[in-house]
Design a protein around this nucleic acid. Structure first.
Lengths: 182, 182
DNA sequence: CAAAGGTGTTCAAAAAAACGAACACTGATT
DNA sequence: AATCAGTGTTCGTTTTTTTGAACACCTTTG
């Protein structure tokens, strides 16, 4: 818990794509409150902080627990994937540098113009995938990148995310979900 | 996080055997501050709360995370232990009703008058034991009980605790530590 | 019994945080 | 170019929290 409360709030808020005013409106506080908190010019009361977080929504315990960007990689270039080939089929490991992986990979195909929307669904666990054909725009928190064949992604599913097929044909992806059971 | 901040602080403080004034002195705040917080008459700023917790000491994340009395049993009567006997030796399972047990049992013998002292050492993990011979006074947080042969204990080691041989002879105990490796 | 040291609580004054309304800036739309 | 809606910031006022010094109560000590 070395990080300042203001910094954490700022990081969390921008992760959810909310402006100070938008969050203030949802939380029922003024934008100046959030502004001064994020500048660490004031230390909010626990009630105030809880009230602000309710606008996200996020619990106090999650706010203090969540690690915001642990420095691990999110995007991998084709040549950064680790080859686990057994000879007949090629299996390239995504996120090999990450510790404590807990997920299972699947196959998916996006129709032209396919889009999960910006509802920014959040769920426990992790998510990863490889683009096979087409162009997929992946949004993870504030980071956005258009990935092509051979590229891949790996991120914490707690961070709001979105997928969009920005190519003119189908987009084939090897995707994954966690926990491994489903 | 349904519980109020004041209630949590009060529970944590009394667990550590500190008075409002003693905690106030260690934390560098006034006793009235702690009094009003514990009555939920005010909502402390995050800084203030952290300052108070530093006097325990306890981190913010631990404060919000720790479950203070999860309703699970701490003391077990002799007949409440689950028999895991293999025929030659009798193995009675302590805390069978508890989920996610992570510990390993050992043997110990306390000399007459033996006492771990009230330094209230705190450590991650869980701790359990069975009294074989003698009388052992076990203090866990606010709860105190004198256990005799066949009785047992099981508690979260994060709660301050103390053992004292209150009998006139040796006290034999089957004790345990966590994690299992040591 | 009375004094001393301990507990938690209460109240007016001082300090800190939240509000409310402004400001300055940016990018998009006329 | 000018308006508009958006962003984050700043400042005086209002509200809330913290302080400091009392209070009432209890237990121990002389």
């Amino acid at each position: 818990m070395s990080q300042k409360v203001g910094d954490r709030l700022k990081a969390v808020r921008s992760m959810y794509g909310l402006s100070q005013r938008e969050l203030a409106r949802r939380a029922g506080v003024t934008n100046s409150t959030i502004s001064t908190i994020e500048q660490n010019r004031v230390s909010p009361s626990v009630d105030s902080l809880a009230k602000v977080l309710a606008g996200i929504p996020m619990s106090l315990i999650d706010f203090f627990t969540i690690d915001l960007d642990n420095g691990e990689e999110i995007f991998f270039k084709k040549e950064e994937l680790v080859e686990l080939s057994d000879g007949t089929m090629s299996m390239r490991l995504v996120g090999a540098s990450r510790k404590d992986r807990k997920l299972r990979v699947l196959h998916e195909t996006y129709p032209a113009g396919g889009d999960t929307g910006d509802n920014l669904i959040v769920q426990k666990g992790e998510e990863a995938g490889v683009i096979i054909r087409g162009k997929l725009e992946v949004t993870v928190g504030e980071r956005v990148k258009v990935l092509g064949p051979g590229d891949a992604y790996y991120f914490n599913a707690e961070i709001p995310h979105r997928f969009r097929n920005v190519g003119d044909g189908e987009c084939e992806v090897v995707s994954a979900a966690t926990p491994p059971s489903y």
